[in-house]
């Protein structure tokens, strides 16, 4: 039953007993990937971790500075802004992706002609590259002539200064992100829905369950692994949001759309403060790992809860 996260799959672990005992063969299978992984991912990441404790400016020799980069962060209003923006972005984007994605999936799961067109239309934005999405939505959200405001005007709503106002710019980017990626969560939910045996619904219907009861007591519990998966993937992606914000606003107006990853980029590259940028990335890593662990834990607890 469990999906994806290793911890959540304790049951399958026992089922797949190891098939090969010749260890050299196993290493030969793993080795090619491992070389790439060590050289291009783990190695650089460890160097990056080391940099977080230095004042390295990319050029010249790094000096060890202990935890002073991390101390500096607590006094850095830019960093705190970036942390807050990223948190707000995640807190709003993740539930929206789950709710809208699930609603779309349930809708598109109905056995009616035309649903394929619907699925394709919802998924299409996901295949676009981030810079195209950024350029396109900068134009969509243009205050005076953008399509969104033009239609709001028809509806008698005053134009929203989307990317020009620090109180709404982040929402503009959230809107863009939902449009861009909701197709992905819809497809994951569709796959999850198709795994729920129809008999369960029929049995419940015979017992006189209302559609809401079906949704609440059959769909949701059986879909919880998928919800968990979508939540985890969107949290990881949301916390690392960069491209669209960089293209659309570069963090402005003011600091209203500055995100953690953009600040990593800004500190490390634009300001040549590699050590400080690396330290911010380390903080981001710790936050993400903590969220993943808490989530995995509550998920397992929830899972055992429904099983019993």
């Amino acid at each position: 039953m469990g999906r994806v996260l290793p911890r959540a799959r304790a049951d399958t672990q026992t089922r797949t007993a190891p098939r090969f005992s010749y260890k050299t063969t196993a290493y030969l299978f793993v080795l090619p990937y491992l070389i790439f992984f060590l050289a291009f991912r783990l190695g650089p990441a460890l160097v990056g971790l080391g940099m977080a404790f230095t004042n390295w400016r990319i050029v010249g020799q790094p000096d060890w500075v202990g935890f002073s980069n991390f101390e500096a962060m607590t006094r850095d209003t830019r960093f705190l802004d970036a942390l807050r923006n990223t948190a707000v972005f995640t807190v709003l984007t993740v539930p929206l992706l789950i709710i809208v994605g699930l609603a779309l999936a349930i809708f598109m799961n109905q056995p009616r002609r035309g649903r394929t067109i619907g699925r394709v239309a919802v998924f299409i934005p996901y295949v676009l590259m981030s810079t195209v999405v950024g350029v396109l939505w900068t134009w969509m959200l243009e205050r005076d002539f953008g399509l969104v405001n033009s239609y709001l005007k028809y509806l008698g709503i005053a134009p929203v200064p989307w990317l020009l106002n620090e109180n709404v710019a982040l929402y503009g980017i959230i809107l863009t992100t939902i449009w861009w990626t909701v197709g992905y969560s819809m497809v994951l939910f569709l796959a999850g829905l198709q795994d729920i045996p129809e008999e369960l619904y029929e049995a419940a219907r015979i017992d006189g369950a209302s559609p809401w009861a079906l949704f609440r007591f059959v769909t949701i519990p059986l879909l919880s692994p998928t919800i968990f998966l979508v939540a985890l993937l969107s949290i990881i992606n949301s916390f690392q949001v960069f491209d669209q914000a960089y293209v659309m606003t570069s963090g402005g107006p003011g600091t209203s759309t500055l995100t953690l990853v953009q600040y990593v980029y800004t500190a490390a590259f634009q300001f040549s403060r590699m050590g400080y940028g690396a330290a911010i990335a380390v903080v981001l890593f710790v936050i993400l790992i903590a969220i993943a662990l808490i989530q995995a834990r509550s998920y397992r607890r929830g899972l055992t809860g429904t099983m019993q």
Binding site: F37, F40, R41, L42, G43, P44, A45, V47, G48, L49, M51, I58, I236, Q240, F242, L260, V261, V264, Y265, A268, M274, G277, A278, A281, V282, L284, F285, L288, I289, A292
Partner: peptide, 13 residues
């Protein structure tokens, strides 16, 4: 490594 922002690996790489 899924949780490590790519930006951190960029300079060493």
């Amino acid at each position: 490594m899924l949780f490590v922002p790519l930006q951190i690996t960029v300079v060493p790489l």
